[in-house]
């Protein structure tokens, strides 16, 4: 069973600072949706608001695609929507073994058969039995991120929120993790909402994307549009130019 995600008029305010202002997106079940923008554009906050980690001051977040889908904040919603964080060094508890980290979501939701599920989750992300009783400090960045992905997937969610899942990893490991994510999406019929500042990563993984700047949605386009440079907004154009990399003859235009 698949589920999609709908956000209408979302607004997130911290004290006097408007982090996300009137943003609406619709992610169809099974789709992969990318959100790009520079640092501070509110893209991560948007994701955290969906997960209930940032305060929502206006707007409606709901699951779509099937009848009787749970409301945000409920237990059932949490089981369906999970998240992978940006920094694999900060997202795993430093004093817990991989085994404990993976057992925690099962214990919270009262799911039995923990032993087999943990084993299966580790196998799926390509970590063998040797890793099960290690502490995070005994793992590399890529391995940690695999554990984080296993933790998110062990509850068998339908929507996975990805907060720059590869930006803290070096290039070769980045590709491995992206392939793993794509593989997981196909195998489990997951819906992805991914935040990144890296246009290459987003075009690789996502069908649809939204460009954000200063908490507002600038432009929505498909990956094909982006690949063929069919962009309307000047900000998106600048972002594209920036992602191509540094060129001496282009620096004049900034």
């Amino acid at each position: 069973m698949k589920a999609g995600l709908s956000i209408e008029g979302l607004r997130v305010v911290f004290d006097d600072f408007v982090a996300v202002d009137d943003v609406s997106i619709r992610v169809e079940p099974g789709q992969s949706f990318g959100i790009v923008g520079e640092s501070g554009s509110g893209k991560s906050t948007l994701l955290r608001a969906v997960g209930g980690l940032a305060p929502k001051s206006a707007g409606v977040i709901s699951l779509i695609g099937a009848p009787d889908l749970p409301e945000p904040g409920s237990r059932a919603f949490r089981r369906r929507v999970q998240m992978v964080f940006q920094d694999p060094y900060g997202s795993l508890h430093p004093r817990q073994t991989v085994d404990r980290i993976l057992a925690e979501p099962l214990a919270i939701h009262g799911i039995g058969d923990a032993d087999r599920r943990i084993q299966q989750a580790l196998d799926e992300v390509g970590l063998g039995t040797g890793f099960r009783f290690r502490y995070p400090h005994q793992l590399s960045g890529g391995q940690r991120q695999r554990v984080a992905i296993a933790r998110a997937l062990i509850l068998e969610p339908q929507i996975l929120l990805l907060d720059e899942p590869t930006s803290a990893l070096d290039a070769s490991v980045q590709a491995e993790v992206l392939n793993l994510l794509e593989d997981m999406r196909r195998r489990h019929g997951l819906t992805f909402v991914m935040v990144s500042h890296d246009l290459a990563v987003v075009t690789y993984l996502c069908d649809q994307l939204m460009v954000m700047q200063r908490g507002r949605s600038v432009e929505k386009l498909s990956a094909d549009d982006l690949a063929q440079s069919r962009v309307a907004e000047p900000y998106t154009q600048r972002l594209m130019t920036a992602s191509i990399g540094f060129r001496r003859d282009r620096t004049e235009t900034f």
């Binding site: 980690l53 964080f85 997202s91 984080a148 933790r151």
Partner: peptide, 8 residues
């Protein structure tokens, strides 16, 4: 944040 997200 991760355990909070899981509903702990």
């Amino acid at each position: 944040a991760a355990v909070k997200l899981m509903g702990a």
